[in-house]
Design a protein around this nucleic acid. Structure first.
Lengths: 195, 195
DNA sequence: GAAAAAAAATGAACTAGTTTAAGACTTTTA
DNA sequence: TAAAAGTCTTAAACTAGTTCATTTTTTTTC
């Protein structure tokens, strides 16, 4: 099996066991996607066509607020699932942009194939039940944890939790993730570095 | 069927169809719980025993930060699901308190029965897949929406979205939900009222 | 229904983070 | 490899929200 498919099968196999036949079936429902650095996987206004699994690279998922300021909700790297679930499920236009910060490779599942998947291999209800449950847990933990911290503390936590990602992204993007201006991010970094 | 059971069956029936037998089986796995105003359903340090469905009343779900300040993550009223999923799933001590703000009635499912449910009626994988998916969507929407708003704007949004809940809770609890001090909440309310 | 407890209001002094602006440094592109 | 574009730094003036302290109002409890 090709490396990217092995990667996604390993990911799914964390929660459910698949027969060889089921693996083949699942793989047949996926689409290979490549996206160059600085290219958009999707833009606000689009109706999301796919849910994505990253096999290589790094992308940022963000919205623009009324003032045009970006808010990054996640950096998606190898083995992450991403997309805009709200738009994917409701078929309404998204408010998100997904932009590659490095040349990236992904596997996508279309909405039609996602629905088909549950019919063909009902076990996937369980896979997604557990995946969403875990996403919910870590999402709640993340937002709740950040709530009473200062920007400096949130930055220190991010560095501790994602040491590899810090070095792959710009300070500006980091600011948009932490939720502060690039200027203040710069101030924090020089403050933290001289400790 | 008794009213509270009808309520939960209606809720489940939004996403899956159950036979009479399955309904009976499901109901047999639930526990009826009553909790008086100001009593705790659970406290930080507890390992969560149940996931809850509210059939009557109102509860607040909150944590205390390092400074002892409360942060309310939700007000749970009739037809809401609540609990601490992280603790329920991982069997680790919770960092949440759930306290009734009115005399309340709930249906709980224990961890053992939750696991059993998936064996006995696999359709529930689908129910929870969809429930968690929707929770994730609305959770992401909520946090992302609030991100660039001032406290005053968040308060106005809350009033618009939950007009009934506003009148059931104290200003202090509202402040702990919006994410500001009670003093500033008071200031905002008098400002908004004289507009 | 009086006393105690909790919630709400008000105001002054304070702080974390923003805004604006300008210069220095890096990366991208032709 | 030079020019253009984008990123980072620094600093001064500003603002949304906090803290602390006191008084008034409402709710709870016996």
């Amino acid at each position: 099996m090709e490396a990217p498919y092995k990667r996604i099968i390993d990911n799914v196999s964390r929660f459910i066991d698949l027969t060889e036949l089921e693996k083949q079936k699942y793989i047949s429902l996926l689409t290979e996607i490549k996206v160059k650095r600085k290219a958009y996987l999707m833009q606000a206004g689009d109706i999301t066509k796919y849910e994505y699994f990253i096999t290589k690279g790094c992308l940022k998922v963000y919205t623009l607020d009324e003032n045009g300021a970006p808010h990054i909700s996640m950096f998606a790297v190898e083995d992450y699932w991403t997309g805009d679930m709200a738009s994917f499920i409701t078929k309404q236009p998204s408010r998100y942009f997904i932009k590659a910060t490095e040349d990236s490779e992904l596997l996508g599942i279309s909405r039609a194939n996602y629905d088909l998947l549950f019919q063909e291999i009902p076990k996937f209800e369980r896979f997604y039940r557990i995946l969403y449950q875990r996403s919910l847990i870590s999402y709640i933990k993340r937002t709740n944890h950040g709530i009473s911290l200062t920007a400096e503390e949130r930055f220190i936590e991010f560095k501790k939790k994602y040491p590899k990602i810090v070095n792959r992204i710009t300070q500006k993007d980091l600011a948009a993730y932490i939720g502060i201006t690039p200027e203040f991010m710069s101030k924090i970094i020089s403050r933290v570095n001289q400790m």
